[in-house]
Structures are given as structure tokens and as C-alpha cells.
């Protein structure tokens, strides 16, 4: 993928398909620590250890009972090629946490890209699911929690165009703040 934000969109859709009612996307960046970490967590159906193993390394297994997905392996590769790490923790009936950690300065680092667009599209396409998005840098952090927005909206749907425009601007303004006012 050209941008990590596209991997995030792909992997977050696994959470949607796993019937999650709440999906968290946490992005933390630190130039000081030369690290970028993305965690995607959900309260969906979860996976057994064996399933996790197959999903992480679909070509390792000889079983051909399911078609091979590439979303998770591509996400894993994007992290490991920087010298970073990748991990999935999952429990059937409880949910899944997928974490990718990157060495930011690596020549093989993929740019984060437009993560705000990913968040906006996930909300637009799944207005009945709740999303929590947090983004932090050395300069600060912010959060968007659709459960809080829902309280204000009193039944007006999150995918109402004006609401989506508000969300997009909220994300943009706050991102500028944590990038020190400059464009990323």
C-alpha cells in the first residue's frame, strides 16, 4: 500500500466484519523515539490462536480451507520491513488487538498518509458502529469518540454530510495542532 492509512482502512474493516460495535484506532508517533505505532482494537468475534497464526502467515499453513487474505500480511510486512514489529492478540468472544510498530526513520518506512480520511470514511460507511480515534505526537494528542458525538446528535446519523464535514474539520484542526501548526 502507498500509505499506512490504507492498511488501516483495510484492517479496520476486518473489525467491522467481525461484528464489532466499537473499533479503536490509536496512532502514536514520536520522532524522539523514532517510532510510530498503530493499534487497531475491536470488540468483535475474535479468533482462536490457530486462526491468528493462519491469518498472520497464510502461506505457512498447508490447510486450504479458507481463501488467503492479504490485508493482515501486508500490514505486518509494512512494519517488519522497517525493523519494527507486529502482533495480534485475540480472544474468541472478546475481540482483537492488532498492533504494528515502525522505525520511523527507516528507508523502508511507508508514510502514514491521510489517516483522517480513513477515519472519516470508516464512520461514513459504518454509521452504526462506534469509532474511537486517537493520535499523538511529541507535541500533544487528541481523540475523536463517536459515542460522545452521538450524545450530542440525539439520533441524527453520523453519516449526515454536515456531520461528516464537521468531523473532517475537527480531525484536520487537531492534527495541525499536534504537528506543530505546520502541514504534515
Amino acid at each position: 500500500m502507498r500509505e499506512l492509512s490504507l492498511n488501516v482502512m483495510d484492517v479496520a474493516q476486518n473489525s467491522v466484519r467481525a461484528q464489532a460495535s466499537l473499533v479503536r484506532i490509536d496512532v502514536s508517533e514520536s520522532d524522539r523515539e523514532d517510532n510510530l505505532t498503530i493499534a487497531i482494537s475491536d470488540n468483535g468475534c475474535g479468533m482462536t490462536d490457530e486462526q491468528v497464526q493462519q491469518v498472520i502467515d497464510p502461506f505457512f499453513t498447508t490447510r486450504t480451507t479458507r481463501k488467503v487474505g492479504l490485508g493482515v500480511p501486508l500490514f505486518k510486512l509494512s512494519a517488519e520491513q522497517t525493523g519494527g514489529s507486529f502482533d495480534i492478540k485475540s480472544k474468541v468472544g472478546e475481540g482483537t488487538v492488532t498492533t504494528a510498530s515502525y522505525v520511523k526513520s527507516s528507508v523502508d518506512m511507508t508514510p502514514l498518509g491521510d489517516i483522517n480520511d480513513t477515519v472519516k470514511i470508516l464512520i461514513q460507511c459504518n454509521p452504526d458502529i462506534d469509532f474511537v480515534f486517537t493520535h499523538s505526537t511529541d507535541l500533544g494528542s487528541f481523540a475523536l469518540d463517536t459515542r460522545e458525538l452521538r450524545e450530542v446528535l440525539e439520533g441524527v446519523s453520523l453519516d449526515t454530510p454536515d456531520v461528516l464535514a464537521w468531523i473532517a474539520q475537527f480531525l484536520e484542526e487537531n492534527t495541525q495542532n499536534i504537528y506543530g501548526g505546520a502541514e504534515n
Binding site: V152, E154, V156, T160, V163
Partner: peptide, 23 residues
């Protein structure tokens, strides 16, 4: 900065226009 007050205004407008698009 985007405020929740603005979101309330959007909500009130949507309600007034009976934005029932999703139904």
C-alpha cells in the same frame, strides 16, 4: 477550533429538515 456547539447547530438543522435520508 471545531466545537460541540457547532455540532449541536448541525443537529438542529438536520432535525428541522427532517433529514431521514437513511430511512
Amino acid at each position: 477550533m471545531k466545537s460541540l456547539a457547532e455540532l449541536q447547530a448541525i443537529r438542529d438543522r438536520a432535525k428541522a429538515q427532517l433529514d431521514l435520508r437513511r430511512e
